[in-house]
Amino acid sequence: MVAGIAVAVGFALKAFNENLMYFFSTSDVLAGKAPKETLFRLGGMVVKGSVERPDKGLMVRFKLTDFSKDVTVEYTGILPDLFREGQGIVANGKLDSRGVFVAEEVLAKHDENYMPPEVKASLKKQVEQQ
């Protein structure tokens, strides 16, 4: 019985593993590893200064980066609270013929650091002084 359960868990984990990468990186997309014509998730940092609203409407265009390659993303809708330049996000959508990632959903990913704003400000100051 234990062996049977172990085998079942093994198979489940194997099947699970194939679906377990929650998102692709921008380098994966440019290397052609991401699926075409189908929805997938793209993760990366929003490039500073790249966020623009071309039609003055809800459509947002920005660049995502993994610090080696950039991918342009277009999204129409309401962005989460934590969406800002320099922030990590995960977008769900697909690539169009222009190589632009058209997102249907944008999720903000936050880091594991928690600190008061004053500490953040003084940390920033230290970095700037160096």
Binding site: F23, V90, K109, D111, E112, N113, P116
Partner: peptide
């Protein structure tokens, strides 16, 4: 192990906890 939407560990890791001591 995998890229997740959930962020990494804050306290339970070998490194110094990445949360301010007052929190």
């Amino acid at each position: 192990w995998w890229s997740t939407l959930h962020q990494g560990a804050t306290v339970t890791k070998m490194d110094k906890p990445s949360i301010h001591v007052s929190m």
